[in-house]
């Protein structure tokens, strides 16, 4: 058989071109938020659904054990709730009054829906993503459950991220801890005097704090103030808890504050989530 002679220079050049093309593809795929092809979607749904079925007995035993442990603390919790009950009636009356006021104000403004109107879809975490350094999770709800790209995702502790891709039975959620530049969230710091608006721009993994930027230096920020979403930007509904102010400092130019926020969510331990669908 005749051997084909290849000039080593051309061979190296070809390999380099192939590497550059492949790396460009990877870069494009990550940055553009490419949607899954039908084949990829089918493979993902099949494996994750199989995993869900096979692990159901394990989850059942694990949940039963957790339930048993929780039952041990019931009496203690009951006593604590008894103390809180005395305040409950007072707060309920206050809440009703405020609800009535909001409804009247909405009528006055002829607003049918507010920025905080949304419906819920509960889901279970199926796995965490290796490529994004654990900053993405897969959940067991997809287009068949009405999930769409860009829907906000929360836990009972607060906001965790948004849906970035969906298949028929599963979805991928990018967490707020991701270093994705498109993952910025409009938030407000609720102080006693006013709401201070800013942009939640990044996450400091070493100190476990979220960073808020774009707050004018003439604002007065209070430590431990609650940080919630503003509802601006059409993805995240308003009033979803993000965290509490831990500290703040002026930026290099002395013009704006950089605020560090302790997240209320433990991003390393997410098992159940809720997808929020804002009413259109």
């Amino acid at each position: 058989m005749k051997k084909i002679k290849v000039n080593p220079r051309y061979l190296i050049l070809s390999i380099l071109i192939i590497i550059v093309v492949i790396l460009s593809f990877i870069s494009y795929a990550i940055k553009s938020g490419r949607q899954l092809s039908p084949v990829e979607s089918l493979i993902k749904d099949t494996v994750l659904t199989t995993q869900k079925i096979l692990m159901a007995p394990v989850n059942f035993v694990s949940n039963s054990f957790k339930e048993y442990q929780e039952k041990q603390d019931v009496y203690k919790k009951y006593k604590e709730l008894q103390k809180k009950e005395s305040l409950f009636d007072l707060q309920e009356a206050k809440l009703k009054e405020q609800q009535t006021q909001i409804e009247k104000l909405n009528e006055l403004l002829t607003l049918e829906k507010t920025l905080s109107d949304y419906t819920y879809q509960h889901a279970q975490t199926l796995n965490r993503n290796l490529n994004y350094w654990n900053n993405e999770i897969s959940i067991d709800k997809g287009t068949s459950n009405g999930i769409e790209v860009d829907m906000a995702v929360i836990t009972n502790q607060g906001l965790i991220g948004k849906v970035v891709s969906v298949s028929t039975f599963t979805s991928r959620v990018r967490l707020l801890t991701s270093s994705d530049i498109h993952n910025k969230v409009s938030v407000k710091i609720k102080t006693d005097k006013e709401d201070i608006y800013g942009i939640l721009s990044s996450y400091d993994k070493e100190n476990n704090v979220l960073i808020i930027e774009g707050i004018s230096s003439n604002k007065i920020i209070e430590k431990d103030s609650v940080v919630v979403t503003t509802g601006m930007g059409s993805i995240f509904p308003s009033g979803v808890l993000v965290g509490k102010v831990e500290s703040y400092e002026l930026d290099n130019f002395g013009l704006a504050y950089i605020v560090k926020v302790t997240p209320t969510v433990d991003y390393d331990d997410i098992t159940h989530v809720t997808v929020l669908k804002r009413l259109k």
Partner: peptide
């Protein structure tokens, strides 16, 4: 490729 499909969306990274 399977690992890529299940846990990511970058086409080639995991296979490479």
């Amino acid at each position: 490729f399977i690992s890529e499909t299940i846990s990511s969306n970058t086409i080639f990274l995991q296979p490479i």
